Amino acid sequence: MFNKWYAINGITNELFDAWKNDLRSDILWWKEPEEETQLRIRLPLIEAIKMRILIRQFNKKNMMSLQLVRM
């Protein structure tokens, strides 16, 4: 009921191809010609905060720049 849409930014097409079988089932994704893969997820506030923390931890370990951005 209080869920908001979020974009997951920073995933390249190569990274997406490696991860697509392991992504959560509630993540919507699509590819457009000549562009990076787009990922969207609908989350409640608490889950979004948890996911942002997990993404920051992942970024530190893997030298990446993934982001969860509210739409």
Rank of each mutant, 00 (worst) to 15 (best):
D17T: 04
K31N: 15
F16Q: 00
P44R: 15
N9Q: 12
I41K: 09
N21S: 01
Y6F: 13
I46Y: 15
L43I: 14
E35V: 00
I53V: 14
D22S: 04
L66A: 02
L23F: 02
D22P: 02
D17I: 10
F16M: 00
N9K: 14
L66P: 03
T37Q: 11
F2W: 10
N13W: 00
W30C: 03
I46W: 13
L66K: 09
R56H: 05
N59V: 02
L68S: 10
F58K: 09
W5H: 07
L23S: 06
W19Y: 04
L28D: 04
R56L: 14
I8D: 09
R42F: 06
Y6A: 11
R24A: 14
T12I: 04
Q57I: 06
E14L: 07
N3V: 06
S25F: 12
L39M: 15
L68F: 10
Q67P: 00
K20W: 03
L39R: 11
T37W: 10
R52I: 00
Y6V: 03
L66F: 15
G10Y: 12
K50M: 05
I55T: 08
L68Y: 09
I41E: 13
L54R: 08
E36S: 12
S65Q: 13
S65F: 09
P33K: 13
P33E: 01
K50T: 12
A48P: 05
K4Y: 06
Q38E: 10
K31G: 02
F2H: 11
E36R: 07
G10P: 01
I8V: 12
L28K: 01
R42L: 10
R42M: 06
K50N: 09
G10T: 10
I53W: 04
K60A: 02
L23D: 04
S25G: 14
A18E: 03
M51W: 11
E36M: 08
R24I: 01
E36L: 04
A7W: 12
M51K: 04
Y6D: 11
A7G: 05
M51N: 06
Q57R: 12
R52P: 01
L23Q: 00
W5R: 11
I11A: 08
M71D: 07
E47F: 04
F16C: 02
Q57D: 00
E34W: 14
I8L: 14
F2K: 11
S25T: 03
T12A: 13
K4A: 15
F2Y: 09
F16W: 05
M51G: 01
K61N: 15
E14M: 11
L45Q: 10
L54H: 07
P33Y: 08
